[in-house]
Write a protein that binds this DNA or RNA. Sequence first.
RNA 1: UCCUCAGUAGCUCAGCGGUAGAGCGGGUGGCUGUUAACCACUAGGUCGUUGGUUCGAACCCAACCUGAGGAGCCA
Length: 455
Amino acid sequence: MSRSTVAQILRATDAPGVVEVNGWVRTKRDSKAFSFVEINDGSCLANLQIIADADIEGYAEAVPTLRTGASIKVTGEIVPSQGKQQWEMQAQTVQLLGDSEEDYPLQKKGHSPEFLRSIAHLRPRTNLFGAVFRMRSRMAYAVHQFFQERGFVYVHTPIITASDCEGAGEMFRVTTLDGETLEKQPDEDFFGKPTYLTVSGQLEGETYACALSNIYTFGPTFRAENSNTTRHAAEFWMIEPEIAFCDLQEDMALAEAMIQYLVADALEHCAEDLKFLNKFVDKGLLERLEFVKSRDFERITYTDAVELLKNSGHQFEYPVEYGLNLQSEHERYLTEEHFKCPVTVYNYPQEIKPFYMRKNDDGKTVAAMDLLVPGIGEIVGGSQREERLDILRANLGEHELSEEDYYWYVDLRRYGSVSHAGFGLGFERLLMFVTGVSNIRDVIPFPRTPGSADF
RNA sequence: UCCUCAGUAGCUCAGCGGUAGAGCGGGUGGCUGUUAACCACUAGGUCGUUGGUUCGAACCCAACCUGAGGAGCCA
């Protein structure tokens, strides 16, 4: 007899016969002579309903005291259900694998996401988190598929780094020294110099793009910002492609194509989970995803966006002025009110952007872009990189950065420099967009946020 | 970091100055096909912490802790 997953059984077109299945009890309903037991093994959203007659092997030991959360092994024949599901199991034997104590916190009823965060080790057993994390896995696979199909090379940039990708945020210090030694003898540290957890693999990624042409990274990223919002985490996963012989227009096109590819992949491969999320989490989800999949994204320059906002007649809390950063409310207006679709804003004033972004011919702006989506805001940030040696050196000076620290980055411009561009896509923000889940802490298994690193 | 709101049973919440409540979950019993099953009975609480006001505080005041939402920073 073969061991089956719930997904294999429920997706069968022909009756699978007698099988063994293992899982965790979601709910049980007793009658006098038999019990209904529903089990879930995470292989899909739906449960398998098991009919356990009171006289089968193992019933007396296992079933009467069976509680939600317990793990069981059941064998039996898969038969058409008399109820609303297609298949159910007529059990022949049942065995308790692991009892669940009576204070098991997950109930059949809905729980708040805040409560479920406090039991992050058990929340994957819920429908919501099962759906989210199956989709997380599928989206990670689709990211690789998207780039591999296009001939991109996957590069593992370092987690521990001595270089700061300016503009990316505060860094976590990595050290083996105690506080006092760290202050007095920093050169005695493990690496002989101050080191940090990476805030971006971009600078290292550029070096590989300037050799392998098209590369991407996909790995954990760390920001020590004291950010307390629904879309920031101290540890998150980021995808950073870097493309040689590429300008900003191509860069934007790649970012847009990637979002559409991932949305289409989710619609095709996560239909059951999406249907659930559409029903219980975000009623407009499926409609929005279908829309994003098929419709071209909008593009607007920063300068035009500022004009548009100024002339919108809309009262904003914060001022709209050339040279100021666009606030959340401005970005929301663009993507949610005005265009009502994803929008890429590009060509930002150089004063508000980091040293490595390429100066445009107007002398005022740099070739930067942010891709904004409704409900979340910025999901992608990218730019064409400054490939001209003299201008890059001048930029370093203007930002009071030392060329010594960045010598290897500058070298790329000394030996066969080429135009190149790239972007960073926040994997969790993509997941929020694709699942409709509104808090980043609910799309990463064990979220790390200021003051919180449990589990 | 700033602003706002909230902490009462395992969970969701009611009570808002006068003896601590409900539904669900748990336990016990019943029920021949259920689907968040149903019916009956039952156990379960330092009302976030500390201090204050009051004859009396879950309730009013202060500080702190924890959580959430918004802002900034960004992915």
